[in-house]
Amino acid sequence: MSEAGETVRIVGISGSLRRVSFSTALLKVLAERAAPAIDLEVVTLEDIPFYNEDLDIDPAIPAVAALKRKVTESDGVLISTPEYNHGIPGVLKNTLDWLSRPVFESCFKGKPVSIISSSKAFTGGVRAQYQLRETLISMHAHLVMGPEVVVGGVYRHFSDEIYTDEAGLLFMLKSLERLRETVVGRRVMVV
């Protein structure tokens, strides 16, 4: 079986609601420049309501059910998040709370996941990335190992909505390829 051309479906989740979000823009750049064997669908979280266990019933809230279905049907997930006050944005944590249900059987259980964090500061969101990893571990996600992808001074890397840091983009694409390799490797192990 040839692994080189085997296509994987990745859901790219942006942790920012901002209309001109850097997190969303990074995912869109990666979707455009990804290898042909990577189908990256970018999703945003505008329609996800605040988590309330009273509302976590059947039938599910349509936006939540749709996102759970996308994650379940995907081969892997790429989360792109900004860092707010040394942590992940509330909208992302809120969404993960929805997606973590049912406990120990969420759509993230065993799902290969990679992370990109960004910040206007030079640190690139390393504290948000740590916090996000802790949450994903509690959800039993399969975190893809490798160098952490952090984009410091993210605003300096865009000009007219075009990402200008070619070396940084190549680094992110290598991380995306590691995610793909993890997915394909897991398929081979199942066969």
Rank of each mutant, 00 (worst) to 15 (best):
E73Y: 03
K174H: 14
K109W: 05
G146I: 09
D75I: 04
E148T: 08
L169H: 10
I115G: 00
F108C: 05
K93D: 05
P89G: 11
K109F: 09
G110E: 10
S159K: 15
E148P: 09
T72N: 12
K111W: 07
R156W: 01
S117A: 11
F158Q: 05
R178L: 15
K120V: 15
A141W: 08
V144G: 02
M139S: 10
E73R: 13
S74A: 15
V144W: 01
L132V: 11
V154M: 06
S106N: 08
K174G: 13
V154Y: 03
R178Q: 13
L99Y: 03
K70F: 10
M139R: 05
I162D: 11
V103N: 00
V144R: 01
D75P: 02
L67I: 05
G87D: 11
K109G: 04
L96W: 02
D75C: 03
H157A: 13
L92P: 00
L179P: 08
G76K: 04
A121T: 13
S118V: 02
Y163R: 03
S118H: 14
K68Y: 05
N94Y: 06
T95V: 08
P147D: 13
L169Y: 02
V91F: 07
H142I: 00
Y130A: 14
G125C: 05
T164R: 12
H86T: 08
T72A: 15
S100G: 15
G153M: 09
E105V: 05
S80Y: 03
L132Y: 11
G76T: 06
R69Q: 15
V91Q: 12
T95H: 04
K111E: 11
L169S: 11
Q129W: 00
I116N: 00
V71N: 00
A141M: 11
V77Y: 01
W98R: 07
C107G: 12
L92I: 07
D75V: 02
V154T: 02
V151M: 10
R127K: 14
Y84H: 14
L136W: 06
L136E: 06
I162L: 12
R156V: 03
Y130F: 13
K120C: 01
P102R: 09
I79C: 08
M139G: 09
D97Q: 09
K70S: 13
F122K: 12
L99G: 05
E177Y: 08
A65N: 11
S100A: 15
M139K: 09
L67H: 02
Y163T: 03
F171T: 12
L176G: 08
S159N: 13
R69H: 14
K109E: 14
D75F: 03
S106V: 07
L132C: 10
T81K: 06
